[in-house]
Design a protein around this nucleic acid. Structure first.
Lengths: 241, 241
DNA sequence: ACTAAAGCAAGAGCAGTGCTCTGGTTTCGG
DNA sequence: CCGAAACCAGAGCACTGCTCTTGCTTTAGT
């Protein structure tokens, strides 16, 4: 409905893309805080006010970049997962986690944009939700495969957390045990803790061999959600409690 | 170096404190990005240029606030730990983690300042290191007690991570097993992943009962570093040294 | 095919920012 | 007691996000 709708419309999406491209370049080079509408316009040979015809405000531009970043990250993780399609759940889990880390190291400012401190006035609109969920869905899929096959242990779950666990499971993955979903949510947050600490410099002078460290940490994370070693379906090993 | 060195010197530290106070108020109210030197000066009844006699740049003011924030967090955690002095290591671990979360929820912008995305050009000077280490030292202390007292399980450690683990242990806690130190570093990062996700809105529409969820997650973290359930009874209180 | 509407770029301008420089005052140390 | 250092105020620079007005061009309805 929109492609051949006239030269005007085509120019609009072209200019919009050019703005986002230039903004992304500045974002990668300088960070979100130094992303300047005027500088983008200047680089594109237009005047700053003209830019407001495409993005009603700087925050809207940022929102567009946020969605793109989520999608870029999700795509990266999905590609890595695709490439490891034949492997077992544990290997795929690690692969996806490492893809997240790799993307973050390659796009630090974009990672900071989506998983760092939010800009003060700004609250992410619901538009970002589907893009943000892609990595989570990938991990859910891996656990689903493991659950359907063999060898997904049920992590411990205290009684007072059970109602919440069941609510989360119903929301996120009704076909998985609540214990697993709960552990997955925690592992998800913890994964980003690991990546964020490395990226934001908290590991400086603490962790040197970060690759190996990360690999070990996400393997432990996998254990936490019930993924056991890729042996043929060993029965659920020791429950942690 | 000199306290009674004159009225001028006293005035200086007074004004410096007033600037930091006002800046902290604005930080808490609006966030780091909206902290304005001019606004601080305006509120203090001085002119913006006068402020540069106390802080050479906005970033230096931020650095001061960062150190204060680390100290405030550390103090909070230490106070909570103190209050739970009689309890076993696992309980104290959970207490400290909950204190971190509580402080973060009470000071979201300051938390974002120290554990969120760093400001673009800015790199934290080494001055911040000791203040930043206080929570970590607390956790190390808890593990030390557990290790000296009733035993601490040794987490798994793959062979390829052993050199790095030994290096980290030598740096951070030479009296603890490398397996434990490695697991602690990971748990440390993961703790901040949990807190950050809740604080930065990533748990919106996902986790509802965050208190219970967090408590469970940090208990699992404690397991990961080798802390087992307390065999109620003697908490190893070593005589004051 | 012509006109009215809508989309567009440009420029000026507002209020705000971090930061610098200058000039005049106050305080302190030798 | 006098020079040096510290201090404050103000003007000013280069920048920011954003608005509003002014013309121009493309689109769309009759």
């Amino acid at each position: 409905m929109s492609t051949a709708h006239g030269a005007r419309a085509r120019a609009r999406i072209e200019v919009t893309a050019a703005i986002k491209d230039e903004a992304r370049r500045q974002l990668a080079a300088e960070g979100a805080a130094r992303l300047s509408l005027r500088a983008v316009a200047r680089e594109l040979g237009m005047v700053s006010s003209a830019l407001y015809r495409y993005f009603p405000s700087r925050d809207d531009l940022l929102t567009a970049l946020i969605i793109d970043a989520y999608d870029s990250l999700g795509e990266s993780a999905e590609a890595a997962h695709e490439a490891a399609a034949g492997a077992g759940p544990l290997e795929r889990w690690i692969t996806v986690c490492e893809a997240v880390r790799g993307w973050a190291l390659g796009h630090p400012h974009e990672y900071a944009l989506i998983y760092g401190s939010p800009v003060p006035g700004y609250t992410a609109p619901d538009t970002t939700v589907p893009a943000a969920a892609r990595v989570g869905n990938l991990l859910i899929g891996i656990l689903r495969d493991a659950y359907r096959g063999l060898g997904l242990a049920r992590p411990a779950l205290p009684a007072d957390l059970r109602p919440e666990a069941e609510r989360m499971a119903a929301d996120l993955a009704p076909d998985l045990p609540p214990e697993v979903v709960t552990a997955l949510v925690a592992a998800w947050a913890q994964l980003y803790g690991l990546v964020g600490f490395e990226l934001f410099g908290q590991f400086n002078r603490v962790v040197e061999d970060r690759e190996t460290f990360f690999r070990h940490a996400v393997r432990q994370l996998a254990h936490g959600v019930g993924l056991v070693y890729p042996q043929k379906g060993r029965a659920p090993q020791r429950p942690a409690s």
